[in-house]
């Protein structure tokens, strides 16, 4: 399956990756085209009736007891934050 310029722009937007200019987008079209050509080998194999495998082990989810184990570490966690005030993380105005 070919990938087009518009697909790259769409993926870049969904992934919130800023692209400098059209040349950068074109570069990705070329790279991704090559990668997807290689990936397209998958299409040749018959997988009819094969269940998808998400995890290498056939394990099931372990549950933890409903207990509060964490205490307030706001100061520690916000020490590495780019912008905070009054305990809040700051972002440019959210418009609803």
């Amino acid at each position: 399956m070919a990938i087009e310029h518009a697909d790259v722009l769409r993926a870049a937007h969904l992934a919130r990756l800023g692209l400098k200019d059209d040349a950068e987008a074109h570069g990705y079209v070329d790279d991704l085209t090559h990668i997807l050509e290689m990936v397209d080998r998958l299409q040749a194999v018959d997988t009819e009736g094969v269940a998808p495998l998400s995890h290498p082990l056939d394990a099931t989810q372990r549950l933890r007891p409903d207990e509060v184990t964490e205490s307030n570490q706001r100061e520690t966690f916000q020490a590495c934050a780019p912008a905070t005030t009054e305990g809040l993380y700051l972002v440019p105005r959210v418009v609803e």
């Binding site: 697909d7 790259v8 993926a11 998958l42 299409q43 194999v45 997988t47 269940a51 998808p52 495998l53």
Partner: peptide
């Protein structure tokens, strides 16, 4: 992002998970 997006998921992601098995 591209392979997970609508219209491509089955052909790529699901297929790859089947091949993984």
């Amino acid at each position: 992002t591209h392979t997970l997006s609508e219209g491509f998921f089955d052909a790529y992601y699901r297929k790859a998970q089947q091949v993984r098995r």
